[in-house]
Each structure stands twice: as structure tokens, then as C-alpha cells.
Amino acid sequence: MIDFEYTAPTQLDDAISQLSEAGDRARILAGGTDIIVQLREGLQSADLVVDVKKIPELTQFEFTAGQDLQLGASVPCWQVYENSEISAAYTALTDAVHIIGGWQIQSRASVGGNLCNASPAADSIPALIALDAVAHIAGPAGRRTVPASEFCTAPGRNVLEKGELLVSLTLPAPGPHSGSAYQRFIPRNEMDIAVVGAGSYVRLDSDGQKIEQARIALSAVAATPVFAEEASNWLAGQPISEDVFAEAGELAKKVASPIDDMRGPAEYRTHLVGVLTRRTLATACERART
């Protein structure tokens, strides 16, 4: 790997100015589980690597007064799944971060980093989209927010402009009678990249009989993780049944335009969208009822 300079600013403003100065030649390091490999393999190059793990705003998480979760961008996976409050409220995210790589990866990899890496097959992004997360971005021009569903723009690309970095994510309080789930299909049982991933969130009526709101998101079926809007909207008002889940799965397939590659043929991936949508909806509803 070509050598670079390394900084680890402790203030957000310093990070922004360092990133701005280096422009296209800067890369952000959080858990490093993607960027270090990419630099090593020559898929990315950098003159400056900015380690953001010493900036308090990025490493903390807290529940706001409204019970929303404010999750620092470099909070590693293990802190998410080991925190009982987070894992109780945002089960789709917990499902996802528990299966990103092995334990060694989860010790370092962050949810924010997984989002910024913008892999079409990222595990946490469908969960974030299903949970309606919002990304908080800071940069030389100030702060802005972008919904998780709009954060990725192409494989490996995101909305961050020169000098900007992802500071945190807000995950809205899931609300009563709600549940969520993330599942992916992989040929092995761990240590694999999703052939297809699906995250589902549901909010039920107070009797737990009908779906009031749903959000379904998919990975590895398009250039970026995608929000299955039509399927999600259709679910509002539907009763809870296998047939409904299956129909939602069929509708979710409409946003899938997968490729054929070594991880799976396109036709198979499209089929799996139906299977995983159905399965995650069933799990999410089950969780919503308990």
C-alpha cells in the first residue's frame, strides 16, 4: 500500500478542516475494516487518512428526550448489540451488526462506516432504512441531514461532499407495537457477504392485528441498498398473515435489479427478495406483538 499521512483529530472542526484541505486525497478511518483493505488492495488511495475515533460526537450514543437514538458514526457494532436498550428497540439494526463479519470485525466496524462504505450488500443499511434513520453530516458549509435511504449514491459512493463527514445517525423511537428484523441470505452461516439482505420494520395497531405502518429495505439487489416503497406503503392497513407477507415480497421484487456474480445469479437474488421480505416481516410482526 502507498503510504499516507495519518491524523486523529479530537475536535470535529479540526477533522473538517483537515478533510477540506486534503480534498479528494483524504479518506476517513473509523473501524478500518473496509478502508484498510481497500487501501491495501489499491482500490482506494489517499494522501491523508483521518481517524475519527477520537472525536467525542462520533463515538457517543444517547437517547434523546423523545426516545430517539442518537448514534455516533464511529460507534462500533459490538456496542450496539451489547447495549440492552438499543438492542431491544432497534432489533433490525442489532440483527445486522451482529453478523457483519466475525467478532473481530464487530469489535472495530461501525454502523456509520458501514453506511459510508456504501456497499450495495451492506448489512446495516437496509436496517437503517427500515428504521427510518437520518444521517447527520458536518462539513465546511455547516451541517445537513440526509435520510439513510438517500445516503448511498452508487457502489462505494455516498452523498458526502469534499470536507464533509458523517457525524451521527438518528434512529427515531420505534413506537409502541412495533418490531423490526434484518436477515440476509448467505451460503455459509457467517463470514459472508449478503447474496440478498432485507430489513423490515412494522408498527401494528394496538390489538396487534393489523399493520399500520411498514418499511422494507433491501440490499445486494441494486447499485445501492434500496427502500421498497411500494411494498411498504401497500402493507399499511393490511392484516397480519403469511399471504400478506408473501404479497409484500412480490411487490418488493419490483425494486430489485440485481446482477449475476460470484455471490449469486440475478434470478436467484430476485427470488430471495420475496423469501427474505416475507421472513423478516413475519419476524418483525412477531416481535411487535411481544
Binding site: P187, R188, E190, M191, D192, I193
Partner: peptide
Amino acid sequence: YFYDDDGHVRNASFLDYRMPTCYD
């Protein structure tokens, strides 16, 4: 070995070659 049309192995890593882990 997953070969593409150009005769390149597309999965030359432990990640995509998929040897069993103990969880399999």
C-alpha cells in the same frame, strides 16, 4: 473457483471462496 468470461477467478479471497467456518 468462480471464473468469469475472461478466465479470471472472481473469488480469490477467503471471504468469497467460502471454506467452512466452525459455525457451518
